[in-house]
Design a protein around this nucleic acid. Structure first.
Length: 862
RNA sequence: GCCGGAGUGGCGGAACGGUAGACGCAGAGGACUUAAAAUCCUCCGCCUUCAUCGGCAUGUGGGUUCGAAUCCCACCUCCGGCACCA
């Protein structure tokens, strides 16, 4: 075997060292240079450094951003392309409990591992700007931002119903809970009332919704955020409560409902209060008291899961009290039912079975009256009718269409002072505290009273007291009496004396993991600044982020939280843009084949025998196997480690294959053996320059100008154009395919001008930077290829002189002629009509019509 | 149930309304080699044919158009999100 073949293991570490030594990817800081050139901020969603290390999905997005960053540098931009670590988080804390080691140590170990893996891929990050959300240098500023929120009244403590996860011993945000379980681990969550920190994200609901409009984000992500914010427009209507006798109750109680269909008020036949509604106890009649109490108690005991899952069958109890329908004065029974949520709207509804399927179901079960107030179309055989139509049975609304009727009813309610227009959001305030150790301590203290107990007064620390560092504690778990781990700290840390001499106790909750990632993109701008979180001038220069790539799993959580903080910072005058991330792109998940036998046991791919007939057998025990494409997971034995791929094929091949697999935004199955294809491509590129027998430059290389090989020269210019365009649209798979086409042509050329190769290596270098550097160097260049200018293509060379003219008869291809690209229309028509191969399909008929598309085809209709 | 997205060879996937299947994997045949690896060349949607010619093909059924994978309507399947939000 020749020793001069393409050997990534030898060249890749060498060039990675060279880049580092020459500081090739340092972000420019010279003010003159910043002023002179345009900027491009290319950002990856930074990883949580888990103990498992990088898997094959991580480098997909990282490679795409790296291609963009490298290309933009070559195109004359100042590029900011940083990386860091979302380093606070539960897994490290759990490992700490298990191994009784400080989570900082575990995290540092994991970060080292991640950094090593990432560096082996040759990404052009500016490592001087690495951030770590768990370092005090960083979280000092997270705490500082919290103080800004607090100053503006956007952070408050409240006794609220929270999602408590017993398995984790902490509360969770709404966004972290789905179908009654924690989305990350599947541990069940229950409702509890606890005093917790909340952030008033609801105050920003409207802006978070409106400002989505101008963002260059995938439509479905915007849609998910819109759904999450869940704006509904409607009305608030007040219903007075009366007893069974129709007389007002003591204190003349009333309640308010929220509805999106005020037009259906005449169709309200009963009302429902949520079991938690404060009025329930007060209005329940003596006769119904036992039943109602029992129902309320049972509803409270249900978990969220039970409430949502089991409640498909609607249940409820009559309170014995009545409400007066403000539209027509009718007496409506008031029920308690848990299909009405305390957490949405006012916790009370007017039930309109005629136009709401849930109310219809409930009315059927309990034999409550049903009145239609919108005329369904002829032939409508459903139950509740939700569509448009003229109002009926609705007094002064009769005949109006839904939209008009809504407006007229609202006008009427306002005039009568019985209600008002109202906008409601599904979005709730953000539950911002966790009972964990490994997170940012809150920069606030609770003042202690004479008795040594908290008086309820909260005092924020001043900026010069930051950071509040995490104390060392004896164990990273809650105290015996259920207080958060930080309550284990000694009084040295826990007890503070305020400037006025009063004593206070530190907050022992910590912030959720989302806190650090809410602003890391700002810290990268000025990562070493220990005077301020970032320099305002630099912020003005670099923001907003021009391209942000990450997984779609953050569509709501991280991206909504970060937008919220950014808007607060904007209102504080601390950032210059309304939105942080101008262009967002979600890479699709990379899936992998898993192999399973009839008993459901999984087998490692290396244990699978692939039969020629497509059969799959386990080598170890001969079991017949079936294959499925699934999310990579340890338990399915289908995780692919990038280190293994690099060891076999090199980082350049891994980078290329990550992108060649298919469109960046789609889910794709990984197949390590297919890496072979891009590896062969790189070997061909290698042989364009290096003679594998001797290690000398290839004998085909000439010093003739590129134009001397006309065909290849044109193909090169097309390649420059195509690759450039594809990088802009993130169509990396077709960019690579174009480079393969070029390489195949260059391989079969008799002579290869050096000029042509030099230009091609520049185009290749963002994708496969190591081999590009090596070959560039071997061609005698001293500079780094990654610092070269991106080549400019010649407009005149990307259009062929001769084109294949397709001749169709009745839309079917019948012949093809080679004609000059600029042949005039009437000439093309004449040529087509002269084609015997085509004309015979007319079978003697006269052409009725001839359509000529210059440069493409002629269609003869006959 | 509601809201998105997607259905193209054995596989991953290409295709401004204009030659469907680029590029790659797998497969078949051949060259080089003592042999293998590597490399190079040829073939590779289905049907028909010795071969051409041809016919059929982009989930299904309609429609618009000179021309539809692409646009419109209905349906089927898969994936994702939300889900008693009044």
């Amino acid at each position: 075997m020749s020793s001069h073949r393409y050997d990534p293991a030898e060249i890749e570490p060498r060039w990675q060292a060279a880049w580092e030594e020459r500081q090739a990817f340092r972000t420019p800081t010279d003010p003159e240079l910043l002023r002179k050139r345009p900027k491009c901020y290319v950002l990856d969603m930074f990883p949580y450094p888990s103990g498992a290390g990088l898997h094959i999905g991580h480098p997909e997005g990282y490679t795409a951003t790296d291609v963009v960053a490298r290309a933009r540098r070559m195109q004359g931009f100042n590029v900011l392309h940083p990386i860091g670590w979302d380093a606070f988080g539960l897994p490290a804390e759990r490992a700490a409990v298990r191994e009784n080691e400080h989570p900082a140590k575990i995290t540092a170990r994991n970060v080292d591992n991640f950094r090593g893996q990432i560096k082996r891929l040759g990404f052009s990050y500016d490592w001087e700007r690495e951030v770590d959300t768990s370092s005090a240098d960083y979280y000092r500023w997270t705490q500082w931002i919290f103080l800004k929120l607090y100053e503006r009244g956007l952070a408050y403590m409240a006794e609220v119903p929270v999602n408590w996860c017993p398995a984790l011993g902490t509360v969770l945000a709404n966004e972290e809970v789905k179908e009654g379980v924690y989305v990350e681990t599947g541990d069940p969550v229950e409702r509890r009332s606890m005093k917790q920190w909340m952030l008033k994200i609801t105050e920003y609901a409207e802006r978070l919704l409106d400002d989505l409009e101008a963002l260059d984000w995938p439509e479905h992500v915007k849609e998910m955020q819109r759904n999450w914010i869940g704006k509904s427009q409607g009305a608030e209507i007040t219903f007075p409560v009366v007893g069974a006798d129709g007389e007002p109750l003591d204190g003349e109680p009333s309640f308010t409902v929220f509805t999106t269909r005020p037009d259906t008020l005449f169709g309200a036949t009963y009302c429902v209060l949520a079991p938690e509604h404060e009025l329930v106890a007060a209005i329940t009649s003596e006769a119904q008291r036992t039943a109602v109490d029992e129902y309320v108690t049972r509803a409270r005991a249900k978990t969220e899961l039970q409430r949502t899952d089991l409640a498909k069958e609607k249940t409820g109890v009559d309170t014995g009290a009545f409400a007066i329908n403000p539209a027509n004065g009718e007496k409506l029974p008031i029920w308690v039912a848990d299909y009405v949520l305390a957490s949405y709207g006012t916790g009370a509804i007017m039930a309109v079975p005629g136009q709401d399927q849930r109310d219809w179901d409930f009315a059927e079960t309990y034999e409550l009256p049903i009145v239609r107030t919108v005329q369904p179309p002829d032939g409508f055989d459903g139950k509740a009718y939700l569509g448009d139509g003229p109002a009926i049975n609705s007094g002064f609304l009769d005949g109006l269409e839904v939209e008009e009727a809504k407006q007229k009813m609202i006008d009427w309610l306002v005039q009568e002072e019985k209600g008002t227009a109202r906008v409601e959001y599904r979005l709730r305030d953000w539950l911002f505290s966790r009972q964990r150790y490994w997170g940012e301590p809150f920069p606030v203290v609770h003042v202690l009273g004479e008795d040594g107990e908290p008086s309820g007064e909260i005092v924020p620390l001043s900026e010069d007291q930051l950071p509040v560092e995490l104390p060392l504690i004896d164990a990273y778990k809650p105290t015996e009496d259920g207080r958060p781990p930080l309550a284990r700290a000694s009084d040295d840390w826990l007890i503070v004396t305020l400037p006025d001499g009063r004593r206070a106790r530190r907050e022992t909750n910590t912030m959720p993991q989302w806190a650090g990632s809410c602003w890391y993109y700002l810290r990268y701008i000025d990562a070493d600044n220990d005077e301020q979180a970032w320099d305002p001038e630099l912020e003005k220069y670099w923001m907003p982020v021009d391209l942000y790539i990450g997984g779609v799993e953050h569509a709501v959580l991280h991206l909504l939280y970060a937008r919220f903080w950014h808007k607060v910072l904007f209102d504080c005058g601390l950032v210059s843009t309304k939105e942080p991330f101008q262009r967002l792109f979600n890479q699709g998940m990379i899936l992998a084949h898993s192999y399973e036998d009839a008993q459901g046991r999984y087998y490692h791919p290396s244990d699978v025998e692939f039969g020629d007939d497509g059969s799959l057998t386990a080598k170890s025990n001969g079991e017949k196997l079936t294959s499925r494409v699934e999310k990579m997971s340890k338990s399915k034995l289908n995780v692919v480690n990038p280190d293994d791929v690099i060891a076999e094929y090199g980082a350049d091949s891994l980078r290329l294959f990550e992108l060649f697999l298919g469109p960046l935004d789609q889910q794709k199955p990984w197949s390590t053996r297919d890496v072979e294809g891009v590896y062969r491509f790189l070997q061909r590129v290698w042989r364009l320059v290096v003679d594998p027998e001797t290690g000398e430059l290839s004998g085909k290389l000439t010093d003739e100008p590129g134009e001397s090989q006309d065909e290849l020269w044109r193909l090169l210019h097309k390649t420059i154009q195509k690759v450039g365009d594809d990088i802009d649209s993130l169509s990396m798979n077709t960019a690579i395919s174009q480079m393969m086409i070029f390489t195949n042509a260059a391989t079969s050329a008799e002579e290869l001008p050096r000029e042509t190769v030099r230009i091609f290596l520049r185009v290749l270098s963002p994708f496969a930077p190591h081999i590009a550097e090596e070959l560039w160097h071997r061609l005698g260049e001293q500079e780094l290829v990654c610092n070269q200018h991106w080549p400019v293509f010649d407009e005149g060379l990307v259009v062929d002189d001769l084109i294949n003219l397709v001749i169709q008869v009745n839309g079917k291809k019948r012949d093809m002629l080679e004609v000059p690209q600029d042949t005039p229309k009437d000439e093309l028509e004449k040529l087509a009509l002269g084609s015997e191969a085509a004309m015979k399909f007319l079978e003697g008929r006269e052409p009725k019509k001839v359509i000529v598309v210059p440069g493409r085809l002629v269609n003869i209709v006959g």
